[in-house]
Design a protein around this nucleic acid. Structure first.
Lengths: 175, 175
DNA sequence: TAAGATTGAGTGTTCAATCTTT
DNA sequence: AAAGATTGAACACTCAATCTTA
């Protein structure tokens, strides 16, 4: 009756299982910790900081919204909401784009620039303390490789929308 | 005059910088992708799933709220809100604890059990596809070591801070 | 019609305050 | 008072719908 192909699930190996739990734990706690410290030290969130960093790395602290969204890898609506909150707090301003009236610019305010310049060194200290001070060069290289592999795979499958291409799960990987 | 200890900020090395950006990118995208697939395939979020998995690993699918919070490493208020939403959707129920009237039990419903049992194999497939199928055993080991190092450090420092630093998670669990 | 961007509703997360029982 | 748990408000993220200009 049940013609459903009910393949016996391939669970993770014990080592993989442990690694996955450890990974989840690390990302959750590191993220929470960095956010907490950023909030305490500079009064902004990591998301705020990410936006400010991008802007501060551009001439005049000025960027097109879509350009910013792409640089951050964020959805445009997320960025729009984020910019609203930041605008209310005086960290950024918006201005019109004359070449393409559909578009808009985001501009760093003086306050925004001061904030990011004070937050950056402290944030680097945190990242160093929790991560890079703890890792050997080999571990840094390994983490970098892993991260690029995973990100590359997701980016490749996400061409436009979800529905990842199921390749049958064979050992033939794109790498 | 020089009361302000203005140490020149020690920026990250280029390699560290690249690694950090790659790491942020990976965690954001992997998390988003896994959530998307879970939602599409099983109609629940990763957070829902985590709760269901914990409950399903206990006798009678029954746990004290605080026990559950510790197992997940979540703040109690976050869990409480989460349980409210899940209760509305019929995935869990609450019941009183007779030994300690302050406490409460969370219980898996039939629907909750069916949901987690159907979601688990698919989720494992996703995790395998995006992570473990891509990594060598050495990379898995490296990631595990890195994760434990970082988590351990944060847990150690968190003495005066947040809630529980749990680990020692179940030896025999699926995720 | 499509591109650039914003809005609103629904959902998730955090912090502080609250309530009950020990 | 402390422990177990819930609540409300503020903030953050996602999806779909919308608005304006190209």
């Amino acid at each position: 009756m049940e013609d459903v192909v009910e393949t016996a699930p391939r669970w993770l190996e014990p080592g993989e299982q442990a690694c996955w739990r450890a990974y989840l734990d690390m990302t959750a706690k590191l993220n929470a910790q960095l956010n907490r410290e950023m909030q305490e030290q500079s009064g902004i969130s990591i998301a705020d900081f990410s936006v400010l960093v991008q802007l501060s790395e551009h001439v005049d602290g000025r960027m097109r919204v879509l350009e910013l969204a792409r640089a951050l890898g964020w959805e445009k609506s997320r960025l729009s909401h984020q910019l609203n909150r930041m605008q209310v707090r005086g960290l950024v301003e918006r201005s019109n784009c004359n070449e393409d009236r559909r578009g808009a610019f985001v501009v760093l305010t003086e306050d925004g620039r001061r904030t990011v310049e004070s937050a950056a060194p402290q944030h680097v200290e945190s990242v160093r303390r929790y991560l890079f001070d703890q890792l050997s060069p080999e571990q840094v290289a390994a983490l970098d490789t892993i991260a690029r592999t995973v990100t590359g795979l997701i980016d490749a499958g996400c061409a436009g929308r979800a529905e990842p291409c199921d390749d049958g799960g064979g050992p033939e990987s794109r790498l």
